[in-house]
Design a protein around this nucleic acid. Sequence first.
DNA 1: CTGAAAGCGCTAACAT
DNA 2: ATGTTAGCGCTTTCAG
Lengths: 366, 366
Amino acid sequence: MNRPMRTRRQATLASLAAELGVSRTTVSNAYNRPDQLSPELRRRVLETARRLGYPGPDPVARSLRTRKAGAVGLLLTENLSYAFRDPAAVGVLEGLALACEDAGVGLHLVPASPGREDVAAVHRAGVDGFVVYSVPDDDPHLAAVLSRPVPTVIVDQPQVEGVDRVGPDDEAATVDLANHLVNLGHRQVGVLCMRLARDRNDGFAPLRRQHEAHYHVQRTRLAALAKTFEKAGVDWASVPVVERFEHSVDEGASAARQLLDAHPGVTALVCTSDILALGAIAEVRRRGLRVPADLTVTGFDGIAEATRAGLTTVHQPVLEKGRAAGKLLLSAGDRVSPKVITLPTELRIGTTSAPPRTAEERWFGP
Amino acid sequence: MNRPMRTRRQATLASLAAELGVSRTTVSNAYNRPDQLSPELRRRVLETARRLGYPGPDPVARSLRTRKAGAVGLLLTENLSYAFRDPAAVGVLEGLALACEDAGVGLHLVPASPGREDVAAVHRAGVDGFVVYSVPDDDPHLAAVLSRPVPTVIVDQPQVEGVDRVGPDDEAATVDLANHLVNLGHRQVGVLCMRLARDRNDGFAPLRRQHEAHYHVQRTRLAALAKTFEKAGVDWASVPVVERFEHSVDEGASAARQLLDAHPGVTALVCTSDILALGAIAEVRRRGLRVPADLTVTGFDGIAEATRAGLTTVHQPVLEKGRAAGKLLLSAGDRVSPKVITLPTELRIGTTSAPPRTAEERWFGP
DNA sequence: CTGAAAGCGCTAACAT
DNA sequence: ATGTTAGCGCTTTCAG
């Protein structure tokens, strides 16, 4: 294959029209409405276009005129490295991309790493709408998105009144999971959770920080755990909650280490994501303990690797979540009231949860 | 958080200027060149903008005027489902996204599934350049991209004269790998490869199909294998090559099954990707054979899961590949001759390759 | 520091 | 079936 080096934009629709001695409309029609002109003329137009090196209508100019960008923006204020490494996030991305593909529109990833305070990229994105995925409620990028006159759909978090949202019922799902543990007999639990706010805190998260979390999903899950365990007679204030800023298996392991070092008496580690849970399991085993005989570990998301590992977790249809968000956005026509789509979740009891060992067992072995 | 439902675009830069009794230039400057007007006036402009619900300069109109879209397009004519499931592809995507992030430009995923013949999406994408990742040389989307007057960088394949390219030296890397097998003593090998053309062929690929493959990477790897094994006295025409259209672990397993059913005598399965190799290993084990004692299996890419599995493979820096492509594109300024970046690869000998069993061993056990 | 003028390249009524 | 007209909303010399 070969190809000449281009100089710069050579021809425009107007110059082509001039060359041909026809109007611009005709040339435009040749590209956009083939049925509006004779096949013969159309052939001539296209032929001349090729000769002059006219690449077809400029997409930006067309967008300006038609008021359609032909793309949806995706705001993801997470380090891409972590986003792409979390199968749950990849699933959402994939589902969204599929919805876009079906509609023939592009998916525009907005450059917005967590550190970046520069919101200009949001304003510069030529898109017909935004999908916002899992950002904190005080993120400036989010505010920038909401200030733009295009429809927006938020996936998972935050909840913003008047804005479409797609996500699971974190509250109900977490209550189910917690009840499973309560029913098994666990009363001494520890929690591993993801980032609660934009400021980094790799360590224990006091009650106040839990309550004021800017990540609605984490806040809700913690609250649901608190509610359920308190109902079972557990004093939540005494339950250790370890937070991690980065979301990776390794961080899950280190969080488990930190928690178990300080609270060796816990009988279950509840993790707010499978990724963290997988790390926790690794750490527990590293300590020579068995899962679930010595320690129960649970996750959240239901990613494939968790299933393979037999993790007790809450499964949510991540691909469908992304797809639903895309469809919702692209059908955003003239809906009146904002729509909230709640996705089904399923408690999947695996082989990582079991009744706690009794004190005697712990001292004298099984 | 709350937010009023928007009606439609309410104010423009012009109407704002009118309202304020200043020129449009001034309003524009308030947004783009704050140093060009008094802080006081600027404050007034922004304040009035808020009051009128003016969301700031329209990105599309700005792009038209400045001739900068602020985004790079990514052409990926693979099913997104598969693309996102292959860590090698995700790595490339991630690296590219990082490069875009650094430059503050968006990454526009062009909707182009393999089946789609509709190339309009390429023409509709408002981007300043394209990265093309691993498409067949006869893909119409590729032609559409090349017809657009913007710089383009191709990752891996195809090789197009005059177009920038980033990729490993597939030839050299594959020769190294093949020599490793030759040196171990393998002469009866089977090959599992990815799609060779746009038409589906799940099965054996005859010589002719190998030679005429439209996927340059696969063609090159096969050719390198052929060359090296022929040099070792193997008649390549007799070497079974099984092709799979879809790229997944399961397909790798099924390909291995197909190959081993027909050619139980092979001592090594050479796979052109780690994904296929992982499937092959699964199938070999399913048959009650041991890797590498009974059968050697090798891959290509060096994805994390392969490393964990101890796979003998060729590692390539996929993230760097994506990043390099992005950087190259974004610096495309006024380079004269096209640039080709060759990334280093490394033969990683793992625990899945060993000398072939002798015939006696095969009959009488080790 | 501010304004006037001149388009960027295209499409969509509305004629003819 | 083709042309005329009228912008889409913005930025950018170049003068004041």
